[in-house]
Design a protein around this nucleic acid. Structure first.
Lengths: 222, 222
DNA sequence: TTTTAATTAATAGTAATACTATTATATTTG
DNA sequence: CAAATATAATAGTATTACTATTAATTAAAA
């Protein structure tokens, strides 16, 4: 029996040549993600990745302009994939509070590999994005990259969740700010829980993180 | 008349040689901050700074191991300075809600240069920290650096504000998480307001940012 | 006061990084 | 099947992030 494959199409500005269109391309995605998770963005180089996949630097440069673009590709992949999952989790749920509850559960839950995406291991991806995603937008090139659509998937998801917020409380003045705060916080708090515990309160535990953020939203919107 | 000078002493792990102890050291701080604010951490090099201050790379290396340590120095300087200001702003204020209000005002307010710190322009520093501070802890070396005290001032401030949170509501389960979320959010939301407006709601305006975060805290703690 | 020691600065390197240009080899298409 | 096109490998370059060595200055001891 043939398994279903989930294709996540991304904007052309996120690559030089679509990595999903060739075998080397897919190998760059798969092993690039693994290497990133192993050594972090600072030490990650196309040279090291080329050696890992028995290819050359210039081959990788034909898919991505530089490692920053590669990270942005993964960043958009993650949020687009999350968006699909969230859309699925909230269809046919009428109560907006229940929808928000499910969204926050998805966001705070440790994910496991989605077999529908063959060359991306979502468990690794979540860790990489948690550590590196802020670096995609905290740069002197934001405006230029924003223009090019580097943050489209993220903005789309924020909009989607904001719509739920507005349903819960149409008078709340800062729906998008609340959503982006919750999304950023979900990464940072978990990270603090693992590495800087004094900055948080045992947020490495999924259930606590979920409770913290849901409580924050519901009380703020009450 | 002699002006008062505010000395912010920092841990020895944050430098090789104390930059406040010599003229070149102070010049490194002053012009390093300016250069950082101009070109961002990615493009910042000791070579460029050396040219700017008519000195050499190796001289700068005698003060800081690398640019990451230099950033961490500024990061701790900022939070230590903020801690002093907060301590001052809340002395003799009995009502914890009023204290929290003043703290959030200080955190969300655009700062201007503090003349008591001769070689650091706090207005520049705030911008630099808003853009770069996440990069101090989002690294594969966190644990090692945490051990060395790279985040001490930040943790100290979080503790101080958490104490106020606990006074307001002793039963609230996540005081530190709430505080670090608010601190991180204050930077990111303002940044989004300036560069990625769809992720927020006009948070480049100090008063709105203040209202958003204060409202978030008070409702959560109610 | 002079010699010695210690500190500081400048010069000159090196290995690695982030690319680019050129050439070679496939693959596709008219 | 030739021509055009796409892909890959090789070989380079400028810059970065340092380190080691030497030179100059300052401070301390004899």
């Amino acid at each position: 029996m043939q398994h279903s494959i989930l294709h996540i199409p991304l904007q052309e500005s996120l690559f030089v040549k679509d990595p999903t269109s060739s075998i080397v391309g897919k190998s760059i995605l798969e092993h690039g993600l693994i290497l990133l998770s192993e050594i972090g963005l600072e030490d990650f180089t196309f040279k090291k990745l080329a050696i890992k996949i028995s290819s050359t630097e210039s081959t990788i440069y034909r898919y991505f302009e530089n490692k920053h673009q590669f990270l942005s590709y993964l960043f958009n992949f993650y949020w687009a994939w999350m968006d699909v999952n969230i859309a699925f989790a909230i269809t046919n749920i009428d109560n907006p509070i229940e929808r928000l509850r499910r969204i926050i559960r998805l966001i705070t839950k440790k994910v496991s590999n989605d077999v529908r995406t063959p060359f991306i291991d979502e468990a690794l991806l979540q860790d990489v994005i948690a550590l590196e995603s802020s670096k995609t937008f905290l740069s002197k090139k934001v405006d230029e990259e924003n223009q090019a659509g580097y943050f489209l998937q993220y903005k789309r998801l924020v909009d989607r969740i904001s719509a739920v917020i507005i349903e819960i409380n149409p008078n709340y003045a800062y729906p998008n700010a609340l959503v982006s705060t919750v999304l950023e916080s979900s990464f940072h708090q978990r990270y603090f829980g693992n590495h800087l515990p004094r900055l948080t309160n045992e947020m490495h535990i999924d259930a606590r993180l979920e409770d913290f953020l849901l409580d924050l939203c519901l009380k703020t919107l009450a």
